[in-house]
Amino acid sequence: MFDWDDLRYFLAVARCESTLAAGRAMGLSQSTVQRRMAELERRIGRPLVTRHPTGYRLTEFGLAMLPHAQAVERQVEAFARQVEEMRRVSAGVIRLTCPEPIVLRITRSEVLDRFHARHPDIRVEFVISDRYVDLAKGEADVALRSGDTDGDLVGRKIADSLWAIYASQDFVARHGKPSRIEEIESYPLVSFEESMAGHRVSTWLAAVAPNGRIVARNTSVLGLVYAVKAGVGLAPLPTAIGDGEPDLERLLGPVPELARSWRLLTRPDLRRTARISAFFDFIAGEIPNLRPILTG
């Protein structure tokens, strides 16, 4: 019988088509990947991959076994998630993910203090990220998220996510300000870097200002805020943040094309657990207090 753990190496090589790249992805040496692949093939008795000048390719047998290995991987991940879930249940922990600027606004309010006072046996921990943390993979339990959402998640709308065009007062004094959206193309712009090309701000700017001059790029909303406050250029920002910055001036908007909804989301299986249900019920009663935090 083969070692189940060796299936990880098979899957990594299948995805990367290279033992070197597979090793990098797994944080291991190329020789370790090659050795474990060779051992797996020896125990199975048939080759799973074959070497080509451009990398590794799955054999016909490897292609046939790939979906079964992927199914094992999904089951192992589900087992690991359940173990972690049971640990958090016993510890009374809820991992909440949301963008960094919102964490600051929530912690400055008394919303979580009221939740902890009502449920002293449950503790909320933040998973801070501007990217979409994968709830399906167990990277967090609950997401406070605006924009497109995973159809496999369940939740409810909390507030509107509105964006407008902002610049610093110093920038306006030096460059003036646009009177229409179509005019922003002639001003220095701040946007996200290529890794966030799919963000709605990036796609919207590319559509309305295809010839615009991007003078600074960032990987987070907070980075956009800092660049705009520095007077580098103008940029779309969430109204909840932009309106709260005394050095910034709202020039245009809100922009309808950038509007989304803030939602509280979780996996269907977690929604039925006692601690997540308690959190959702509490948040439902806090919507009037959360709207100024999220919308401005």
Rank of each mutant, 00 (worst) to 15 (best):
A173P: 00
F280L: 11
E41K: 07
P288C: 03
F61E: 12
G253T: 05
P67C: 09
R123C: 09
Y9F: 15
G285A: 13
R174N: 11
E185N: 09
I276R: 01
D3W: 03
A140I: 02
A216C: 01
A209I: 05
M86C: 12
I181M: 15
F171K: 06
A117W: 04
L270M: 13
F282I: 01
K157T: 11
E286R: 05
D134Q: 04
L162D: 06
S90D: 14
V215R: 08
H119V: 00
S195I: 09
A167N: 05
Q82Y: 07
F115S: 07
P188W: 09
Q34M: 14
S202E: 11
H68F: 15
V201C: 01
W204V: 09
T32P: 01
I128Y: 04
M65C: 10
E245C: 15
L252V: 10
E245T: 09
R87F: 10
Q82R: 15
F2A: 02
K137A: 13
V215L: 11
D170H: 00
L48W: 04
P47T: 13
F192I: 12
I44F: 08
M65H: 00
R272T: 13
P246V: 02
R95G: 02
V225N: 06
R263Q: 12
V13S: 01
R250P: 01
H175D: 05
R46E: 13
G223R: 06
R267F: 03
P101K: 02
L224H: 14
R267H: 11
P67Q: 09
L237E: 05
V103Q: 08
K157A: 13
S202W: 08
E183A: 14
A21C: 07
E286A: 08
R15C: 00
T219D: 11
S109T: 09
E60W: 08
S261F: 07
L48M: 09
A227S: 15
N218M: 12
S191L: 09
V232L: 15
R57Q: 10
V154S: 10
F282S: 01
L290P: 03
G244I: 03
I44M: 08
M37T: 03
D130K: 05
A159M: 08
L144H: 07
T54M: 10
S179E: 15
Q34W: 08
R131C: 01
R36K: 14
A159K: 04
A164I: 09
V255I: 15
G285W: 06
I158K: 04
L40M: 06
R174M: 06
V103E: 10
D281M: 03
S90A: 15
R74G: 01
V49H: 03
A284E: 14
R267S: 10
I165T: 08
I128F: 03
T59D: 05
D121C: 01
L237Q: 03
